[in-house]
């Protein structure tokens, strides 16, 4: 059985939909230049689902607003904050009400997808039903289409 090193202090994101672990890391801005231990374990056997991905990030406690963006990729993921090798806090991700600069509008005719549009930040707002409205083109999309 594959063993992944425990982290002393940091964040473990569990129950990520299989195959989406890399996307979660991208969303959190964790890249090859990150200085501490990062583990991405894919296709782990799971009781709840057939397979899942797990991400372990040492050295940071990922903040709630950022954590909730993970819900866009995997709405059932859970966040474990690890302090001194123990789980200090555990909760499920929640879709945020507002998304600023992290999502791309799926509407190809939205000005935000025009290469020559210039300087702007994308903003999406949700009515709390898992659907988001682009503040520019006013179209509404399911969260899964935004990332």
């Amino acid at each position: 059985m594959l063993k992944v090193e425990m982290i002393e202090n940091g964040t473990v994101i569990d129950h990520i939909e299989a195959g989406k672990g890399k996307k979660v890391l991208d969303l959190l801005g964790i890249g090859t230049d990150y200085p501490y231990l990062v583990a991405l374990v894919m296709n782990v056997s799971s009781k709840k689902k057939e397979k899942k991905d797990i991400v372990k990030i040492a050295g940071i406690y990922v903040k709630d607003d950022l954590v909730n963006k993970v819900a866009l990729v995997s709405p059932n993921a859970t966040i474990n904050i690890i302090k001194n090798s123990k789980v200090a806090d555990k909760h499920q991700v929640k879709l945020p009400m507002e998304l600023k600069s992290i999502a791309k509008c799926p509407n190809p005719n939205c000005i935000t997808n025009d290469l020559n549009a210039g300087d702007f930040k994308t903003i999406f707002n949700s009515g709390g039903n898992g659907r988001y409205k682009c503040s520019f083109c006013e179209r509404v999309f399911p969260h899964s289409e935004l990332i």
């Binding site: 000005i111 935000t112 210039g118 702007f120 083109c137």
Partner: peptide, 23 residues
């Protein structure tokens, strides 16, 4: 022709912007 263009114009302009049709 692009949807949302008038909103983006209003974000960057100080003068009032009136949308004459965006996509």
């Amino acid at each position: 022709s692009k949807e949302g263009s008038a909103r983006l114009a209003a974000e960057v302009a100080e003068a009032p912007v009136i949308n004459g049709g965006d996509g």
